[in-house]
């Protein structure tokens, strides 16, 4: 799977970091998402999808590869 994040849309809610801390982080100054792993392994798919579902600003897109 491939993960795309939209920094402009992000509101720093941190839901993604709580759901999948190995894939997402937040910048210290403004809380905006930092993508740690744009191609997470298959076994992380559920957590990454949960992060995308929980994102309040729809700033995470998951593409199946």
């Amino acid at each position: 799977m491939k993960v795309i994040v939209d920094e402009e849309r992000c509101v720093g809610g941190g839901q993604c970091v709580a759901a999948a801390p190995d894939v997402f982080d937040q910048r210290d100054d403004d809380g905006v998402v930092v993508l740690l792993d744009p191609a997470p392994p298959h076994e992380r798919a559920a957590a990454v999808r949960e992060a995308a579902m929980l994102c309040p600003a729809a700033a995470i897109v998951v593409v199946d590869t």
Partner: peptide, 16 residues
């Protein structure tokens, strides 16, 4: 809203 939210969000991150 975006301007203020970004100024505050860094203080409320999961890590902080």
């Amino acid at each position: 809203h975006t301007r203020y939210r970004r100024l505050l969000a860094g203080a409320f991150t999961v890590r902080r």
